[in-house]
Design a binder for these strands. Sequence first.
DNA 1: TCGCTCTTTGAGAACGTTATCAATTGAAGG
DNA 2: CCTTCAATTGATAACGTTCTCAAAGAGCGA
Lengths: 360, 360
Amino acid sequence: MARRRQSVTIKHVAADAGVSLQTVSRVINNEPNVRPAMKERVQESIDKLGYVPSIAAQRMSGSRSYIIMAINDRDLTIADWRAREGRDWIDQMLLGGMLTCAEHGYRMLIELVDTHNDHVERELGAAIAALQPDGIILTPPHSENPLITGLLAERGIPFARIGSKQGGLGIAMTMGDTHNARLATEHLIQLGHTRIGFIAGPEEFSLSNWRVDGWKSALEAAGLSAEGLCERGDFGFASGSIAAEKLLRTDDAPSAIIASSDQMALATLEVARGRGLQIPRDLSIVSFDNSPIVRFTQPPLTAIDQPIAETTSRAVELLIENASGKRPAEPISVPGKLIVRASTGKAPSANLSEPRTRSA
Amino acid sequence: MARRRQSVTIKHVAADAGVSLQTVSRVINNEPNVRPAMKERVQESIDKLGYVPSIAAQRMSGSRSYIIMAINDRDLTIADWRAREGRDWIDQMLLGGMLTCAEHGYRMLIELVDTHNDHVERELGAAIAALQPDGIILTPPHSENPLITGLLAERGIPFARIGSKQGGLGIAMTMGDTHNARLATEHLIQLGHTRIGFIAGPEEFSLSNWRVDGWKSALEAAGLSAEGLCERGDFGFASGSIAAEKLLRTDDAPSAIIASSDQMALATLEVARGRGLQIPRDLSIVSFDNSPIVRFTQPPLTAIDQPIAETTSRAVELLIENASGKRPAEPISVPGKLIVRASTGKAPSANLSEPRTRSA
DNA sequence: TCGCTCTTTGAGAACGTTATCAATTGAAGG
DNA sequence: CCTTCAATTGATAACGTTCTCAAAGAGCGA
């Protein structure tokens, strides 16, 4: 196998411009203390020869690797892919992350890591050693894993935790989950609903619980009860069916349900249909995520759009600033938006006269 | 900014095992001519110290970069992402590509490149110079772009063209588009349909035309006419609406429509509904791609599942074998499957008695 | 003009790995 | 036991970039 060599190197540029390697390097990296005339001359050679620095060599010499690694959970992700479950979390991360990386001359690389075994550290450690990324983006549930955050902090690699609370190691980025759930709940309250069910995500995801908090606080503010109205799922379709079934088979069933994921909302839709309920006449449904699917169901679902792309983009910016040694700006929490579609409507009139249905 | 150095290097391993660097390198790369005892001794040190080779350094020394680059069209992809159109092409590529890469110690990196401007070459050239990937996967419409394939061939970088015909530069991988379209058409013919419409993709995608070929050949084999039954779209929802409208507003409208993408199928569904047609009683619909969306429409759509993940996985394998100097196996064409759901049914009985409706 | 400081440029080492070629060891054949 | 050749190991030079530190130049006040 022939040894493939880089076609145009910094040497060629230096020779062409008649300067030293170091000067060319300075121009490439936009360092200060280069005379404008010199800078221009070097830049001309760079353009003329079509020179692009080798990332491998840059990394070798101890500077940046220009790689941001996004860590996703292997099991979860693959299960979704195989089943074509259609969560577009990864898609949206790519959108936000890749574009922002590209703007700064970085690349984003997705790495799948198993949460559910005991060698998370080893696996992640190997990925880091191999690629030496300048920054890492953690997504739930990894963002809450102290083994992982500890490892990264120890190695001094900047990282952002998406969907994770402020404080602690690394940069925390949230998507306003509490606020978003409150938004959805208030929307339903305004439509006259007094019994609003909630299908929560799994407990190991903090954001699951923040959403529950938001729902509860909105109910409390309106003087409504939450009792017996919360079931837990695992974000997947099957668990959503079970949860919806439980909520709907009670005597005093809710007239509206908020599901913590699109899949669980779809399941709720199916269960409701199976019980002969019309949406939204008999039951209003709000879903979380707003992935492509929910626009094409019958009826299209009202949903909370989680700003994954924007949050990832922001995380990338913070990491790059961090790596560049610039004083990074504060992390921001990007709140989601409520997208109202046809799956939510006025509450069945029977309940309208009596806002407080608390009975237990 | 402190110069971050690799924690455990090949030097440490060599010192620990009491051998030369080169021997360690040989063990890492599984080269022949290392005594088993020696190999074991070195491997022990590697495991003990948790050593992982630096990809940057490996690439520097002229060997592989362990990176496979997947090139996607920037405009198309971003538009889909922004609109949450829900094509899961990228998702499926990631599934197939990343897992296979991971198995071989490679990484897959997605790179977005603009087709629609004149500096495709420069953009791609820069990405190659920066990352020096061991292999490249091209997706439509890039896989048919002679500028790109020429560039890659010239630089001697192995590449696979997905959705592109055999012959020509690089490795061609197809997904049996002709066969798949024939499959869908035959399914409808068996259900008694005699006027089967087809919504094709844009002409610059060869696979669009292969699908048309498959549809036509199945019709011909059954003695049916294709005349006036093919419209073109651009894979997107809006274009699907227009095409479906055209097909359905004729006097002699088809009783079944095959759409070349899920989005166009969804549009057809909507147009049909708007015209008061019941699916599948009045109109059968088959879609191409089988992305997550189509399982949750009402009714769920019969669809051709394009084996994107499998094809990408296979492409990665071929590229890695190529890079390893092994004599690569032949590229294979992975045919798709027809997934029958509720959107296809028996043709309206009127047509059943007279299979040949040719009139023009 | 001299001497000082700050700016601009350059030379050479270093980064962690593999390629190349030389040196050593071991085995087989006479 | 010696020769011959292959198998195994090692030493050194790349690879393309940035870092460190030294040198040269420029500006400025006395």
